[in-house]
Design a protein around this nucleic acid. Structure first.
Length: 274
DNA sequence: ATGGCATTTAAAAAATGA
């Protein structure tokens, strides 16, 4: 089994692989920040969401110069958009859309193999306002994801489904507030849709290694929610059994959210060992 | 119930996001 990333030095060091997910909220505005973070964090694979570009606008050359191969899917107009980056290699694309709705033109799913790991990169619909057609679309999309996930779970290959699920799993995953009571992100139907997925046999990587810690991945730009640490945990990495066995770390790069001109999300990552 | 903020679209105010 080949390892990805740089050599590990001498003397029986175990290969570690780092996989991250990051809702970047416009790759055009955020490219310098992204490149800084790639350089500092050195992830082996990255799932990006909310590129907010046309297909032909992806900054392929800059990403390549940073040492990453990439596949991506943009959209016209510039909403949504997802990409998978892989250090020192080219992701092998498996699919560009979530099965189950041929009429769905939104760029919200990409799937690729990177050095023996199957990576699903997803950007679930926000679903606001609820109730309404956008919330219906969100629930239908998550149901399609669950159906597809079931087929992936049953493979012997290590699989990670990483991205912005736009679901706060429990009340422990949001600051103390009533502001989000009517929000699609915390509704019982949204939480149930995520729970269905987990119950299939997927592991929420952050919660597996930090069962009781307060951990957020998103802080709204408004009302000084970053400064107040009024956050939500909505970006998740779900692991199937073969990958769960190899999980050794799961963290949020919180500092990235505090930088000037940052996305409202922070990167989330896992490390796995052979 | 509204607005607070960032971004895109499009040329002022509206849509989208979470």
């Amino acid at each position: 089994m080949p390892s990805i990333g740089p050599p590990n030095g001498v003397g029986g060091t175990i290969d570690r692989v780092k996989i991250a997910t990051y809702n970047i909220n416009s790759i055009r505005n955020r490219l310098p920040r992204l490149l800084e973070w790639l350089e500092a964090a050195q992830p082996d694979a990255v799932c990006l969401q909310e590129l907010r570009i046309y297909d032909e606008e992806f900054p392929k050359d800059e990403i390549e110069s940073a040492g990453y191969g990439a596949i991506w899917r943009g959209q016209k107009p510039r909403y949504n958009g997802v990409a998978i980056l892989a250090r020192d290699t080219q992701p092998v694309e498996i699919r560009r859309e979530l099965p189950g709705d041929r009429g769905d033109v939104q760029a919200r799913y990409l799937e690729a193999a990177v050095n023996g790991i199957l990576i699903g990169c997803l950007y679930a619909p926000n679903g606001n306002p609820q109730p309404g057609p956008k919330f219906d679309y969100k629930l239908a999309w998550l149901a399609r994801l669950a159906k597809h996930a079931k087929s992936l779970r049953d493979s012997d290959v290590p699989v990670v489904l990483a991205g912005d699920y736009n679901v706060v799993p429990t009340s422990a995953d949001i600051y103390s507030t009533t502001s989000y009571d009517d929000d699609a992100l915390v509704q019982p139907e949204s939480r149930e849709a995520l729970a269905v997925l987990i119950e299939q046999g997927w592991t929420d990587a952050i919660r597996a290694l930090h069962p009781r810690e307060t951990i957020y991945t998103f802080w709204d730009y408004m009302r000084k929610r970053w400064e107040r640490n009024a956050g939500l945990r909505i970006d998740h990495l779900l692991l199937n059994g073969p990958l769960r066995k190899r999980l050794v770390a799961a963290e949020v790069d919180r500092d990235v959210r505090g930088r000037p001109g940052a996305s409202d999300h922070a990167p989330v990552w896992i490390e796995i060992e052979d």
